[in-house]
């Protein structure tokens, strides 16, 4: 089965690109191929001149569910990648605490995942993906299960983190407004076999604020993305 065909795209360093499309269009498959978690059946993913065949040390992955290890504390979940890489030192611990404080979880270092709300868990997952200062952050519909308000808070947090770290971000979503609000560029996918139906550069300046969501320019980008998805007919 071909989940994805004819995706030819150059990801620019420091940019935030959103992969927007319906379920089953292959956007998650593309993200997993970039992450090195899934091998493409044809074609290749090349990053910094090297073909990606397995996960890289400076990639950070945020899953659809928080995917925390329930038997570990919040702090030790965030430190998990460092533990695996054999870099569990004082500096790593200090950075984990700093990250958790930054996302407002400074008081929950010793809590277990089951004591946290969905939004808090996803913030822990975000810290875990950032602990080793990745240069590429891959996010697979990370806020899909959150309520609207929490989701908007997470948007601010993500843009904030991205401004501070300068990391490149690839973000999978099926929310039009989420894609437009966050991204420098939106890749719009159509359903099976997945192909890119539109590439939209979002020329809205950062830092972006919630009020932006209600401007005419924002609405126009949303309309164009909707047309690319096939939910609207081209005007």
């Amino acid at each position: 089965m071909v989940a994805l065909s004819e995706v030819d795209y150059e990801l620019r360093k420091g940019e935030l690109v959103a992969l927007l499309g319906p379920s089953g269009c292959g956007k998650t498959t593309l993200l997993r191929m970039v992450a090195g978690l899934t091998r493409p059946s044809g074609g290749s993913v090349i990053i910094r001149g090297r073909e990606v065949t397995e996960p890289q040390d400076d990639f950070g992955f945020v899953f659809q569910s928080p995917n925390l290890l329930p038997w570990r504390t919040v702090l030790s979940n965030v430190l998990f990648p460092m533990e695996i890489k054999g870099r569990l030192d004082a500096a790593a611990k200090a950075r984990a605490v700093e990250l958790l404080e930054h996302v407002g979880l400074g008081k929950f270092l010793k809590s277990r995942p089951h004591e946290l709300s969905g939004g808090m868990k996803q913030r822990v997952a975000l810290c875990r993906a950032l602990i080793h200062s990745p240069s590429l952050i891959l996010m697979d519909e990370p806020f899909g299960a959150l309520d609207e308000l929490t989701r908007m808070e997470m948007h601010e947090l993500l843009l904030d983190i991205r401004r501070l770290t300068g990391a490149t971000v690839m973000f999978v979503t099926h929310s039009i407004s989420e894609a437009v609000y966050l991204a420098d560029e939106v890749l719009v996918f159509s359903a099976r076999p997945g192909r890119v139906s539109d590439r939209i550069r979002i020329d809205l300046p950062y830092p972006r604020e919630a009020a932006l969501r209600y401007t005419a320019a924002f609405r126009e980008y949303e309309r164009r993305a909707g047309a690319g998805l096939g939910v609207l007919h081209h005007a």
Binding site: L37, P55, F63, N67, L69, F80, I84, K85
Partner: peptide, 16 residues
């Protein structure tokens, strides 16, 4: 499977 993906994403060895 998501937990195994997590392990793969941080390049954990089979033992880890």
């Amino acid at each position: 499977t998501e937990m195994l993906d997590l392990a793969a994403s941080v390049r954990a060895s089979g033992w880890q």
